[in-house]
Each structure stands twice: as structure tokens, then as C-alpha cells.
């Protein structure tokens, strides 16, 4: 029997205490465009910040080289000072536009310099805007592969980075085998195109869903991170799996969440945002944090159990 517990911070005015981010600051009225249907909590869920837990972040659709990206990156560095996440999974569109050597600097190395200096690792997946050769870029830790998996340094967790622009037969066979052979308690997938999204620009990729979702269900994936739509959204659990759209790392599509999709547990589309998460045993705590440093969503997810 799968268990799934999520506590959502649904108040429009949220006193932010989790992580100590901008203590006392509030989310402006109207900032959260979609109310969470789950049991409302009066405060955001605080990350335990325990020794030995797995701490990581999620970022997507960020590589513009523009000022908002830098501001978001600065906020990520501020959060790191209080919550030392070891790595960041990237859900694609790592570099927009040209991808010359100087673009790697202005769209990645410079904005995240503070994090790179702290030895925070970035594990990339590729979006539709990313040249395939990014897979060789040392700081993206892809080991020359378009899709790959890695075991997290803490807790019993494996991440699966997929390449959703060319979801070929070989890759599907690979993911099935990889999932089959994975004995980790937590299995987390991330890739660019969302299987579920209320984004008005792209929305759910149903065709990709047909291929991937049965595998995710069968092999006990607990959480999926995607981007592509330039919003933050946590979806209502689908077949026991929690999906996030975190395409809000650098290029916002303001007001792009379709309120009538019926999919949204929590959405935020009025500012840039990224996620931090902490896995401790069977629970994953998460906060979505805006460029201004406000916690715009939070909760706890209990991992899926083997049937």
C-alpha cells in the first residue's frame, strides 16, 4: 500500500521561517496563484536539516545569462549558507541561445560561482534548448552520456536523468533495465518535458507519459522533477507519484498556470523559484523558494513502498 503525505503551505500570506529565509518576510498577496487542495498548514514545513540526511536542490530552465537568473542564483547561494545541499539536479534548458565557451561562463559558471566554489555539484539533464555536446561539459557531471543514473552520496537514493527530447527506444530499454536493477529505497527521475503540467505554454506531454509512466509505476519511482514550462508547480499525486515542474529558474512565464487543469496541488508563477529537498529515511521534505527568498510551497512526501 502506497502512502503519501503532503502538507501544503497554502496561506497567501506566509510567514517564512523555514530555512530562515528572509525571516519575517511574506509572500505578497496573489503570489500563489493556485491553492493547495491538501490539508493546509499555517506555516511552511521546515526542513529538518539533519546530519547525514540527503540534501539537494532542483533547478530548471535557467541559462539565460540575464539579470533575473543571477538574482535567483544569489538566492540559491543564500539558502545554501543555511541548508548545505550537496548537489543540484538540473531539469534542462541549461543554456539558452548561443552556447559558445563564453556562454558557459555568462549563463552558468558566473551566476553559480558561489555554489561551485562551495563544491556543490550540478547533475544536468538536457532540454530542447541544450546542445547535445553539453554532455561532455565537466561541470554538468554527465560523463558524456545523454541519460544516466547516479547514487546519491547520502541515504538510499538513486537519481535517473533522462533525455526527453529524443526519447528513443534504446533509452526506454535502458531506463527499464536501470530501474529494474536499482535496489535503492528512493528512486527519483528528472528530465525536461513534464508528464504532467498545468503550464499554459506546453502543458503535459501525454505522449511521453504513455511511455514513461508505466515504468515509473512498475518500478516504484517516488518523485519526478521536470521543467519546460516556466513555472513552479507541484502536481496532485498521479498514481502515487509526486510530479514537480521546476522550470522557473531563469525565465518566468508569469500567470501561465492554467487554473482549470485540475492537476495542481500548488502552483507559483509570479516569480522565479527553485527547490531544496531533504531526504531522511522514508520522508522527503521540500521547500520551493522564490527569487525574493520566500517559501512558496513546502511539504513532506513519503516514499512509495515496494508493492
Amino acid at each position: 500500500m502506497r502512502t503519501h503525505r503532503q502538507i501544503a503551505a497554502s496561506a497567501l500570506f506566509v510567514v517564512v521561517v523555514a530555512l530562515g529565509c528572509r525571516v519575517g518576510s511574506t509572500v505578497p498577496a496573489g503570489a500563489a496563484t493556485v491553492q493547495a487542495p491538501q490539508t493546509a498548514a499555517s506555516q511552511p514545513v521546515q526542513l529538518p536539516n539533519k546530519d547525514g540526511s540527503l540534501k539537494f536542490a532542483v533547478l530548471g530552465d535557467f541559462g539565460t545569462g540575464d539579470r533575473p537568473q543571477y538574482e535567483m542564483a544569489n538566492q540559491m547561494a543564500v539558502v545554501w549558507e543555511r541548508f548545505k545541499y550537496k548537489f543540484i539536479v538540473l531539469v534542462g534548458d541549461n543554456l539558452y541561445g548561443s552556447q559558445r565557451p563564453q556562454d558557459f561562463v555568462s549563463k552558468f559558471e558566473r551566476p553559480y560561482e558561489a555554489l561551485l566554489d562551495k563544491d556543490v555539484k550540478f547533475y544536468a539533464s538536457l532540454g530542447n534548448h541544450d546542445a547535445r555536446e553539453q554532455r561532455y561539459y565537466k561541470l554538468f557531471n554527465m560523463d558524456g552520456k545523454l541519460y544516466y543514473s547516479f547514487k546519491a552520496p547520502d541515504e538510499d537514493v538513486r537519481f535517473f536523468a533522462l533525455e526527453s527530447t529524443y526519447m528513443e527506444r534504446d533509452q526506454v530499454a535502458w531506463i527499464e533495465k536501470e530501474l529494474q536493477n536499482s535496489n535503492e529505497k528512493w528512486k527519483i527521475a528528472y528530465f525536461h518535458h513534464p508528464l504532467y503540467s498545468s503550464g499554459g505554454r506546453h502543458g503535459s506531454d501525454r505522449r511521453l507519459r504513455e511511455v514513461l509512466e508505466p515504468l515509473f509505476i512498475k518500478y516504484n519511482i517516488s518523485v519526478v522533477f521536470s521543467g519546460h514550462d516556466h513555472i513552479y508547480e507541484r502536481l496532485k499525486p498521479q498514481n502515487g507519484i509526486t510530479y514537480f515542474v521546476v522550470g522557473s529558474g531563469g525565465q518566468l512565464r508569469r500567470g501561465n498556470i492554467n487554473d482549470n487543469s485540475g492537476l495542481t496541488a500548488r502552483g507559483f508563477d509570479t516569480d522565479l523559484a527553485f527547490m531544496v529537498a531533504e531526504i531522511s529515511d522514508d520522508e522527503m521534505y521540500f521547500n520551493a523558494i522564490s527569487r525574493a527568498g520566500n517559501v512558496v510551497d513546502s511539504g513532506i512526501i513519503t516514499r512509495r513502498q515496494q508493492p
Partner: peptide, 15 residues
């Protein structure tokens, strides 16, 4: 061969 841990310059040069 392009290293699996290449710099952007090496990637660009190879391309």
C-alpha cells in the same frame, strides 16, 4: 577524443 570532463573551450574546438 573529447574528454567526458571537457571544458567549454575543448567542446567548441572539437566541434
Amino acid at each position: 577524443n573529447l574528454s567526458k570532463e571537457a571544458t567549454p573551450e575543448a567542446i567548441d574546438k572539437h566541434q
